[in-house]
């Protein structure tokens, strides 16, 4: 007989690990949904990658914290820091990337990229040979190397949307983030894409991505738990006693052994 015990606490205990395995199954099914989402012209152009495990997620969170402090504009600093906490509280991260927006535009003259009835806005600003864009120079001056084909990038929305729909259908809490996608892409997830979104997945009695208090990167549950570990050890060293022979809770002078102060 085999038993699978599942409990969300403590984190990364065998019981929590069993729950994470369930979330991993959902993550894989979400990728299926992302790949079958409606795309412009039905053209394939997306890739997915799944990050799983404490160490893997910690590396992503740290890259987000680096971006928060060193690269992104001030208004994104706190969202990036808060979302790094959410990564640590997640069970699985799914990355979805669009392989075409920066390399193989739709070439339809839709007007979205530059407001012109042709694709000149993109091609005049990128290195290309007769319309074949050269992406081998991967250096960047901005977080994302632009311009990109907007109608292709728009497709990524469908992939993310369908993935999130499946997560919601399975009652797995989810959140798609720019911060997670950017960090993951920098670490080599979905490396054929310039634009990557990161989807956090978490199963817990409380949705880990909602109800976020101020300075959450400093006030989250893991900090609070550590706060208890930090203080309790000190505190217990003061009211100590020789417990084999003496119970300070016992009422002095009483003959009744059960009677306490």
């Amino acid at each position: 007989m085999a038993r699978i015990h599942i409990d969300e606490w403590p984190p990364y205990s065998p019981s929590d690990q069993a729950k994470k395995d369930n979330v991993l199954i959902v993550a894989k099914l979400m990728v299926n949904a992302a790949l079958t989402a409606p795309f412009t012209g039905g053209v394939p152009g997306h890739e997915a990658e799944i990050a799983y495990g404490q160490k893997e997620l910690e590396l992503i969170a740290r890259e987000m914290e680096r971006l928060a402090h060193k690269e992104v504009p001030e208004r994104l600093k706190k969202p990036f820091l808060y979302e790094a906490v959410m990564v640590r509280e997640s069970d699985v991260v799914v990355f979805l990337g669009n392989k075409r927006a920066h390399e193989t535009p739709m070439d339809v003259g839709c007007g979205l990229c530059g407001g012109e009835p042709n694709c000149s806005f993109v091609y005049e600003r990128l290195n290309h040979f007769s319309g074949i864009i050269d992406v081998t120079d991967r250096s960047r001056d901005t977080a994302i190397k632009g311009p990109v084909c907007v109608v292709r990038a728009h497709d990524l929305g469908y992939a993310i949307g369908s993935a999130l729909w499946v997560a919601a259908d399975c009652f797995v809490d989810s959140k798609a983030c720019y911060s997670v996608g950017l960090a993951g892409r920098n670490l080599g997830f979905c490396m054929n894409s310039e634009i990557v979104a990161g989807i956090l997945l978490g199963v817990a009695s409380k949705n880990p991505y909602a109800d976020i208090p101020p300075n959450y990167h400093l006030t989250n549950m893991s900090k609070q738990v550590d706060g208890i570990r930090k203080i309790t050890t000190i505190t217990r060293q003061i009211p100590n006693h020789p417990y084999h022979t003496f119970d300070p809770a016992k009422k002095a002078g009483s003959k009744d052994p059960g009677k306490e102060e």
Binding site: G109, C110, G111, C113, G114, P117, D155, Y158, I160, I195
Partner: peptide
């Protein structure tokens, strides 16, 4: 300005949100 399907330039992340 406008092309055959829309006005631009466009914020890429808005286009992705609209896709969702």
């Amino acid at each position: 300005g406008v092309g055959i399907g829309g006005y631009g330039p466009t914020c890429v992340w808005k286009a992705i949100d609209f896709g969702m």
